[in-house]
Structures are given as structure tokens and as C-alpha cells.
């Protein structure tokens, strides 16, 4: 009997060893976690001391006259770009009218894109096959220029003294200003009508989100302007506030959205470029100067913006 008892004990021991081994639990989020890298928190940049806080518009004097396309002066940034063969332009791909991916053609199109191509035309003689359009978010505009991921940024970018501290701007190529977009029939006629109970959405890293904080309404920051439209259409925010130009593009995608109130900020748009190559900034200014004078600017404006934003003529350039 004792032998039988020990056999049972043995069997129990074997069986216990056979008991289900602990296994990893299912965890679908952790298994590909940390997939999205978080942006680094850079220290707040110092504004450019040469910049006037009341008017950040003045840029570097343009090159006069423009060098012949395909024959850039040696040692300049333009000569490097010419030998690289492509001009890399940071653009929006979700801002209707300015930079957006046309699902029909698969191409990124818009007013900003055409302004950027003028620079390529001046360097290569043509922009066909000479331009690499890199879709970026608003927050990436300055880091991308500083890191050299692209040569210029043409992405509804407001000229400010803080930004002048990190990058160069061209002369103004479009004068915009901030407004607010709300639901039709919400009884809101200006941003001042909105309370602290309500929220307004804007893209992170823009001048628009900073401007919202001057009012009672809460601000909600997201990655892109179309993300704001998603929140707005899903009822998770009560409005979107940014430049009238961007709002016009958003309103065109939503029949129940209206743009209200007066401009409550001045948003002069400039082409961003690296601070390391002032000669390139002067070159860009000369390209814009030419576009203002020979009617190219007007043609582009009429093609892309006139229907939505009304008659306008090119903004006057200011230089230091």
C-alpha cells in the first residue's frame, strides 16, 4: 500500500509539473508601443534682436539682378541645390487651396506649392522634375529647416521675431489674419462670444494657438488643421481658429461651418529658409520681387485664391 501511495504522489508531482505554464498575456498595445516617437522639448528660442516686434516683415535686401537659371554663383546655397538637382520644399498636404493632396491626380497642389516652385524655376529654369514636395506638419517647419531635411518651407507660415531667431524669412508673399470658424446657427459672431466652457481648436506649434489664449475660450491643440476639422465635425470642439486662408479651406469641406468676426491678428506669410545661407534668402526675395512685378503672383492668386478670398493684389515687400 505504501508503494501505491508513493506512486500516487509521483503521479501528482508529474501532473503538477504539467500544469499550464504561465504564458504572456495578450497585449496588443504594448507590443508595438513606443512606436510614435515624441518630439523633443527644445528650450524656448530667443527672438532675433534685429527684428522689430511690431513689424517682423522686413527681410533681407534681394539679390539684384537675379542670376541666369542654371548658372548660380559658385559657393552659394543655390549652386549646391543646382548640383543636387532638386529643390526640397516643405509643404502642407492637407490645407485646401494652399497645399493639399489632390486625390484625383495624386499630386500635392495649391498656392503655396506654386510659390515654392517659382524658386525652383529661378534655379533650374524649370520646376518640372526639379522639385521634391515634402509634406510636413506645422510643428516640423522650423526643426526641418534647421536639420536641413528640406531647403525651404512654404506652408502658410507667419513671419514672427521669435521664428526669425531660428530661421530666415523671405519678404511677405501673402497677408493673412486670424478669424474663427464655428457651427452655423450657434449664435456666435466673434471669438469674444465664446466662453470658457467652450473650446477652439488649432494646430500645435502655430501662432494661432497662442493667439487663442488671449480670449476666454479654451484652446485644444492637435497635429494638423484637418484634425481640427475632425474634432469639430465630431462635436468635440466648438470652433477652429486660425488664418482666414486656412479656415476658408476647412469651411469648403463642411457646409455647416461658417467663418465669423473680424481679423484679430496680422499673419504675414513668408517663405522659410535656413539661417545659414543669407544669400539664398536674398535670392528668394529677388524671385518674389520678380513675381510681383511680372504678374506671376497675380496669376497664381487668381487661379487658387480669388474665388474664395476675393480680389487682392500682391503685398508690398519690406526690407531691412
Amino acid at each position: 500500500m505504501r508503494r501505491f501511495a508513493s506512486l500516487i504522489l509521483l503521479f501528482v508531482l508529474v501532473a503538477t509539473a504539467c500544469a499550464a505554464p504561465t504564458e504572456e498575456p495578450f497585449d496588443s498595445v504594448a507590443e508595438i508601443a513606443d512606436a510614435s516617437g515624441s518630439g523633443s522639448d527644445a528650450p524656448a528660442p530667443e527672438p532675433d534682436p534685429a527684428c522689430n516686434p511690431d513689424n517682423a516683415r522686413p527681410s533681407l535686401q534681394p539679390d539684384q539682378p537675379l542670376p541666369q537659371p542654371g548658372a548660380m554663383p559658385a559657393g552659394t546655397r543655390m549652386a549646391d541645390i543646382l548640383s543636387d538637382g532638386t529643390l526640397r520644399i516643405g509643404v502642407a498636404q492637407d490645407t485646401l487651396l494652399f497645399g493639399f493632396l489632390n486625390p484625383g491626380t495624386g499630386e500635392i497642389e495649391g498656392f503655396d506649392v506654386e510659390i515654392g516652385k517659382l524658386v525652383a524655376d529661378a534655379i533650374f529654369g524649370t520646376s518640372d522634375g526639379r522639385v521634391e514636395l515634402i509634406p510636413i506638419s506645422s510643428a516640423e517647419r522650423i526643426p526641418g529647416l534647421v536639420d536641413g531635411r528640406f531647403d525651404i518651407v512654404v506652408k502658410t507660415m507667419t513671419i514672427t521675431c521669435t521664428r526669425w531667431g531660428q530661421i530666415d524669412f523671405s519678404s511677405v508673399y501673402y497677408e493673412s489674419g486670424q478669424k474663427v470658424l464655428v457651427r452655423e446657427g450657434a449664435g456666435i459672431e466673434r471669438i469674444e462670444d465664446m466662453t470658457a466652457e467652450e473650446s477652439v481648436c488649432a494646430a500645435e506649434g502655430t501662432t494661432s494657438i497662442a493667439a487663442i489664449d488671449n480670449f476666454a475660450v479654451q484652446s485644444v491643440g492637435v497635429e494638423t488643421w484637418t484634425d481640427c476639422l475632425v474634432l469639430f465635425q465630431q462635436g468635440q470642439t466648438d470652433g477652429i481658429s486660425t488664418d482666414d486662408t486656412i479656415l476658408a479651406g476647412l469651411a469648403a469641406q463642411d457646409p455647416f461651418a461658417v467663418i465669423v468676426g473680424d481679423l484679430f491678428s496680422e499673419e504675414p506669410y513668408g517663405i522659410g529658409s535656413s539661417k545659414s545661407y543669407p544669400e539664398f534668402t536674398r535670392f528668394i526675395n529677388a524671385v518674389l520681387e520678380q513675381a510681383r512685378q511680372d504678374g506671376t503672383w497675380q496669376d497664381l492668386y487668381d487661379t487658387w485664391l480669388r474665388d474664395t478670398l476675393g480680389e487682392q493684389s500682391p503685398p508690398t515687400a519690406q526690407y531691412r
Partner: peptide, 21 residues
């Protein structure tokens, strides 16, 4: 939205995908 050429379509797609994840 995409059929109308509206860029907000892509943002909705990302929102949908984030909902799953």
C-alpha cells in the same frame, strides 16, 4: 470626404485607425 477631394478624409482615416489601436 476623399471622394470630394477633401484633405480631411485622411484625418478621418487616421482617427478611425487610432480608435482600433
Amino acid at each position: 470626404n476623399n471622394r470630394q477631394g477633401f484633405p480631411v478624409g485622411a484625418a478621418y482615416l487616421t482617427t478611425a485607425s487610432d480608435l482600433l489601436t
